[in-house]
């Protein structure tokens, strides 16, 4: 278990991480979620002891950070890269060596993983000769080769083709079954929803939601409706009893007042739209986030980009 208690970190003027606490239980997938720049990476770097918190504690199965703990952490950073000129096998063995693995042991395990990711034929190639997707797989191998107990994966699926996404999902399932302590960080709520047992959503350095995913969903009640339709969906936003809405070109998610019956919504919508599918369902993670923060992840990111752009133009 990883326990994070009251973590604070300030960079010159920005409160990057502001009183963040959570526990990561073994044998479960823990989702550390939030838009880019929310403080996920900073939190992860503090867990990894790459940067030090201003205050707060981090424990690994009750122990503070040590070299021994360091050797039992596997980390896949969001920003990927490898040595270009070096051979695949050498690179893997170097990182395994840094985690304390002997060269013979690391070679044996590397061969197993390369086989599993269908990379065996490239073992003696230079890394620059590999495709981008294959390089990503190599990095994943590096993060798990030393059989770490604590595994931190930052956006592990980005850049993988669908086939390899499924393979990675299967492997994560195995790691979960083996009782590893798994932190899975992403800003894609749909993905997190499929993968995670527990979630912790961070926004602007603060925890805005934390708990078991299923329970958190229940708390938000069964008051979300999803509609698939043909026509101009913008009228859905203006329906009576709709508190929040996310309207796409032929799909919409509506959060309705608990006093309003879903059927009145379908009756109204049916007047203007060709409805293909209508579902009353648990709120999605995205909808929960929307409710908590008042904007969707995408909107926050867009806003942040604008701020950055205006700052840059100044």
């Amino acid at each position: 278990m990883i326990e994070v208690q009251n973590l604070y970190k300030t960079f010159t003027t920005i409160n990057a991480v502001n009183d963040v606490s959570f526990k990561v239980e073994p044998g479960r997938v823990f989702g550390l979620l939030g838009p880019n720049g929310a403080g996920k990476t900073t939190s992860i770097r503090m867990i990894l002891n790459i940067i030090y918190p201003d205050s707060g504690e981090i424990y690994f199965d009750g122990q503070p950070f040590s070299i021994d703990i360091q050797n039992r952490i596997g980390y896949l950073p969001e920003e990927r890269g490898l040595y270009r000129k070096n051979k695949l096998m050498h690179t893997i063995q170097y990182f395994a060596g840094l985690k304390g693995l002997s060269s013979r042991e690391s070679k044996k395990r590397a061969l197993y993983w390369l086989e599993r990711f269908q990379l065996s034929e490239y073992a003696n190639n230079k890394i620059e000769e590999l495709s981008k997707g294959n390089q990503q797989k190599v990095q994943f191998i590096i993060s798990v080769l030393h059989e770490p107990r604590y595994i931190i994966l930052d956006e592990p699926f980005s850049g993988l083709d669908p086939v390899n996404q499924i393979l990675l999902k299967d492997i994560l399932g195995e790691l979960r079954k083996e009782g590893k302590v798994l932190i899975f960080s992403t800003h894609q709520m749909e993905q997190a929803e499929k993968m995670c047992d527990d979630v912790c959503i961070i926004n602007r350095g603060r925890v805005v939601l934390y708990g078991k995913l299923s329970e958190e969903k229940k708390k938000f009640g069964i008051n979300t409706i999803s509609i698939e339709y043909e026509g101009d969906g913008s009228m859905l936003k203006r329906l009576g009893g709709v508190k929040r809405s996310a309207v796409y070109s032929n799909y919409a998610e509506l959060e309705i007042d608990s006093a309003v019956q879903p059927r009145t919504i379908i009756q109204e919508a049916n007047k203007y739209l060709d409805i293909r599918k209508f579902e009353v369902k648990e709120p999605t993670l995205n909808a929960i986030f929307l409710k908590l923060v008042g904007a969707s992840v995408e909107e926050i990111e867009l806003k942040d980009q604008e701020v950055q752009l205006t700052e840059a133009s100044l």
Partner: peptide, 16 residues
């Protein structure tokens, strides 16, 4: 500089 531009540094820093 190479390790920084390739962001390998992040994995290295988490290993030693």
């Amino acid at each position: 500089v190479e390790e920084k531009t390739n962001r390998i540094i992040e994995v290295l820093a988490s290993s030693c």
